[in-house]
Simulated scan of single mutants.
Amino acid sequence: WGDESVVDDFLLTFIHYIFPENVALRGKSSQSSTYAGSGPECALDGSLNSWTHTNDQTNPWWRVDLLKVYRVNRVTITNRPSLGSRINGAVIRIGNFLDIYSNTICGVISTLGDGATATFSCGGMVGRYMVVHIPGSRKTLSLVEAGVYGTLAENVALRGKSSQSSTYAGSGPECALDGSLNSWTHTNDQTNPWWRVDLLKVYRVNRVTITNRPSLGSRINGAVIRIGNFLDIYSNTICGVISTLGNSATATFSCGGMVGRYMVVHIPGSRKTLSLVEAGVYGTLAGNSLL
């Protein structure tokens, strides 16, 4: 096999496929508030006789931090045996952000019977957090058990080394890999600005994610995403083009297993500024030697 990390990832994937594990049980739970001692851990204790319970509040939520990034196949929610209508309208989200609304919706619980369990297919959504929340005022969130099932899906860009064509006001290339929505990369106004991550090894890239800044998001418009083995930008293969992307929005681009050591985001043209909040590269090792 050559690389121990490849063996470990393969074995974990195989084991999780044959014996699906509720990976939420490895995580750390929290919630927006706690009523009468019914804390967030009650949704992970395996008991049908205990449940989480928030106060009556605006936008109550329950969250599990999986501690690592997973490709989530499905989520299960078990409702309390009485007063089950308190779960109605709850939204399930998967993502990498503490800000609830920056994560992707996996499902919505319109209604769920007392004591019932519902399963929601998340289609391989990638994230460190699973959140259940009810939008609106004077809401109470309560659930008996929560399950998250999937396989490890590491953002391999976090292992790499980032760089960019220029830096404005200290907003360096590392800001796209710091996990914060409150920082972003920023180049000068220039010709053909770019941001690049050197993955240090050659990967077969399945997809790339780009999160836009919360304001002035139009600065990402027209950006081209490329995967390849060359420092010369245009020698690499185009994975996707960001025509437009809303403020704070995250876009996912399927790269279909493109092979490369570098992922580059660039905007062709004169008097352009490139700025992004977060970047993700997901794939598997395609070789063991550095180029």
Rank of each mutant, 00 (worst) to 15 (best):
G39F: 00
H186N: 15
Y262W: 12
P20R: 09
L276E: 01
S183I: 04
T78R: 10
F10Q: 06
T187L: 06
I210A: 00
S110T: 15
W51G: 04
V265H: 00
G37P: 07
Y282S: 04
N206A: 11
W51S: 13
A157Y: 02
S142N: 10
R128E: 07
L48Q: 12
I94W: 03
S110A: 13
Q57V: 12
S50H: 08
S82Y: 15
G124Q: 07
N79S: 11
I134S: 01
W51D: 03
L11C: 12
V75E: 02
M125F: 09
S243L: 09
C175G: 01
L112Y: 02
S38W: 08
D189R: 11
D232K: 10
V281E: 00
Y282V: 07
D114F: 00
I225S: 00
F97D: 06
I94Y: 04
E21W: 10
S235H: 12
S163L: 09
G179Q: 01
N59Y: 05
A249I: 05
I94T: 10
C255N: 04
S289C: 09
Y149K: 05
S137I: 14
S166V: 13
Q190L: 11
H16K: 14
L66G: 05
S82F: 13
P268L: 06
V259R: 06
G136Q: 10
S50R: 04
K272T: 02
A279N: 03
A251H: 02
G283F: 03
H16W: 07
Y129I: 07
L44M: 13
A146W: 02
G170R: 11
K201W: 10
G287T: 04
V202F: 04
C255W: 01
D232Q: 13
